[in-house]
């Protein structure tokens, strides 16, 4: 099966499931599909850094959580009508998704710029450990930040609004998340074929040669890292909106690990990898989590089997092309 068909089939499956659930009146299934779409969006962000850029970031929960907190902070100020003071300025909170998304994207891109600029001075295993450490820094900062809930997190009363939609209706909110995911995947697909994506791919495989033709691997990778962080941050804002809750758990290193798991489960560097990984993850979480309290052990065993015996993930198995790295 060619990769294009795998991608289209995965998208069609994600779209068909909630439509079936709507007809069968199973709102919880729509929520599960929404969760899968949002996690797929977060992992699509990570896939740009991890798959195309070859940057193994174990700190992407930082961007996910920053997006979540952008939503939590803006919405909580809107619901208490207390303006947000930024030094000399006073800004009102907002419950409008487009504004929240812009703030989430800007804040997580800025964080990615700072973390990336420092971490990309190194490579390989240093990069993994440093991104992990910076992720943990944001985690501890959020737990000690009592103004916004500290360890307990921050909940909001109603889901934020989007012009022309009623986001409280599950299927409408799903449609919105699906559309954002589709846009992000289109962007990633275009990026892989664009000069920037080709140069980035080359910087992963042969940095010395990229440097020799006059391009800077550092700047290419930093740009990819910022784009990657921004998309994951946007997903964080949606995820917090889905749960109407944000807490330091979104910033935890387990979250970073799970995002990597989503990408690898599906297939590294594949367009549909994050989507298939997220769908599988949510399904496993739902079925195994319902069957046994210790479902993480089974998840671990499945992961080990995939790493040791099925490199290339599900997409690699389906297309019969194995691993795309190397």
């Amino acid at each position: 099966m060619s990769e294009r068909w795998v991608t289209l089939a995965a998208l069609a499956a994600l779209l068909a499931l909630p439509l079936w659930a709507l007809a069968a009146d199973e709102p919880f299934t729509i929520t599960l599909a929404t969760r899968a779409a949002i996690l797929a969006l977060a992992a699509t962000g990570l896939n740009i850094a991890l798959g195309t850029g070859g940057l193994v970031s174990l700190g992407h929960a930082a961007f996910f959580g920053i997006g979540g907190y952008a939503m939590g902070i803006l919405a909580s100020h809107a619901q208490t009508f207390a303006p947000l003071s930024l030094g000399p300025w006073e800004v009102p909170g907002t419950q409008s998704m487009p504004v929240i998304w812009l703030v989430a994207i800007a804040a997580s891109a800025l964080a990615a710029l700072a973390i990336g600029a420092l971490s990309l001075r190194t490579a390989g295993v240093y990069f993994i450990m440093i991104t992990l450490a910076f992720g943990q820094m944001f985690f501890y900062f959020a737990t000690s930040w009592r103004a916004y809930g500290g360890e307990d997190g921050l909940s909001i009363w109603v889901r934020n609004g989007f012009p022309g939609l009623n986001t409280l209706v599950p299927i409408q909110f799903f449609g919105l998340c699906f559309a954002v995911l589709l846009l992000a995947m289109l962007l990633h697909g275009r990026l892989i074929r664009a000069p920037f994506g080709l140069a980035l791919d080359a910087a992963r495989q042969a940095p010395a040669r990229v440097l020799a033709v006059g391009l800077s691997p550092y700047r290419l990778q930093l740009a990819a890292f910022v784009l990657s962080g921004a998309i994951t941050g946007l997903a964080g804002a949606l995820y917090a909106d889905l749960n109407r809750f944000v807490s330091p758990a979104m910033l935890s290193w387990q979250m970073s690990g799970e995002l990597i798991v989503l990408v690898i489960l599906g297939g590294v560097g594949r367009l549909a990898g994050p989507l298939i990984g997220a769908g599988l993850f949510v399904a496993l979480e739902h079925w195994l989590g319902g069957a046994t309290e210790y479902w993480h052990a089974w998840l671990g065993a499945i992961l080990l089997a995939i790493v040791l015996f099925a490199r290339g993930g599900i997409v690699g198995l389906l297309t019969g092309q194995g691993d795309r790295r190397g």
């Binding site: 991890l50 690990g257 690898i264 993480h296 671990g300 992961l303 080990l304 040791l308």
Partner: peptide, 30 residues
């Protein structure tokens, strides 16, 4: 496990050892 990972890239090592954490933690909790 580890013996099969020495020749692999760091991404595989991260993922396999992350899987081991999940297994160790759940078995201990059990």
């Amino acid at each position: 496990v580890m013996r099969r990972l020495y020749a692999r890239d760091h991404l595989d090592q991260v993922l396999a050892t992350f899987a081991l954490i999940l297994i160790f933690s759940e078995l201990t909790r059990w």
